[in-house]
């Protein structure tokens, strides 16, 4: 304690500088964590957090028993798995292919173009998605060319998840590839030289040099992905879904938003749902980190 006081007076200016930041995290990150205890209460705004009566695990029980429980869990996990299976490898493949392009200008044109959609606002992107998948939209037209039928694609629950995941890949493919390109630029060119001398072809080089060079960053991102399995952001969901598609579109976070803020004000119940999601995510993250540390030696901490 005395040492701390000494440090406080010696580094007064530093403490003064980090103070606003610390306050920010305490108020806007840690206070809501403390506020999550309303998940164990029957909270009402007038009584406040401390004044509201405890209800134990009642709100969690209500969520597990509700007809929505399996629906939101299933949708959240399915969208996550689709994103993992299709969305995760895509930028890796793009980075490897970009790495093989010899013409510098062509490479930088492809990069510039492919990063662009990342900067377009979600509202505009969703406006485009709704327009292109409408009855007269270009996606419908292409489906008709291919022998399918024209329809308002987002009017039916069948298509929601594929449209959600595909458009997400379209928007983030290029941007997500940057981190892999950064890792590739760190690979020693002499490795390729040596491989060529040993008679390795292009594919063999990609397989034996490029891909292994990416493994550490792939593992790190995979851990983060798995730690976010239960967390599908609600912003894009609530821009694209409608009551007809709730069946396949409603995920945990959009459910929390709808029941807690948009339609009802069931703060305790939805806090319980949110807390459930946060805890599962955290456990998944720790588990994935532990597993990766054991198996590949790569870890977040």
């Amino acid at each position: 304690m005395q040492k701390l006081m000494q440090d406080l007076s010696r580094n007064k200016a530093i403490y003064l500088m980090v103070l606003p930041m610390v306050l920010y995290y305490v108020i806007f990150k840690y206070f809501p964590m403390y506020g999550s205890i309303i998940a164990f209460k029957d909270f009402s705004v007038s009584k406040g957090i401390l004044g509201s009566p405890w209800t134990g695990l009642e709100n969690f029980q209500a969520f597990f028993d509700s007809i929505y429980f399996w629906r939101v869990i299933r949708n959240t996990l399915l969208i996550s798995v689709y994103q993992l299976v299709f969305g995760f490898p895509a930028p890796i493949i793009l980075a490897i292919l970009l790495n093989e392009i010899r013409k510098k200008t062509f490479k930088s044109i492809v990069q510039t173009v492919s990063y662009l959609p990342h900067f377009i606002s979600l509202v505009v992107i969703c406006g485009l998605i709704l327009d292109f998948t409408s009855r007269d939209g270009i996606v419908s037209t292409i489906i008709e060319w291919l022998g399918g039928e024209r329809s308002t694609l987002l009017g039916s629950a069948d298509n929601f998840r594929s449209i959600f995941v595909t458009s997400g890949i379209w928007q983030e493919l290029g941007w997500s590839s940057i981190i892999f390109l950064a890792a590739l630029s760190g690979i020693n060119p002499e490795l390729y030289e040596a491989a060529r001398v040993d008679g390795a072809g292009r594919f063999r080089q990609m397989w034996s040099i490029t891909l292994p060079g990416l493994v550490p960053i792939i593992m790190i991102l995979l851990i983060l992905r798995i730690g976010g399995m239960m967390d599908i952001g609600f912003e894009k969901i609530i821009l694209l879904y409608n009551p007809n598609t709730y069946e396949t579109a409603d995920v945990i976070s959009s459910f929390v938003y709808r029941k807690g803020i948009a339609e009802g004000q069931d703060y305790s119940f939805t806090s319980a749902v949110g807390l459930f999601q946060a805890v599962i995510n955290f456990v998944l993250l720790i588990g994935a980190n532990w597993f990766s540390r054991r198996v590949s030696g790569n870890r977040l901490w």
Binding site: Y30, F31, M33, G35, G260, T270, L275
Partner: peptide
């Protein structure tokens, strides 16, 4: 970055 209080408590805050 890995654990958050969630939407509802933040909204109430």
């Amino acid at each position: 970055m890995y654990f958050t209080g969630g939407l509802i408590p933040t909204y109430l805050l």
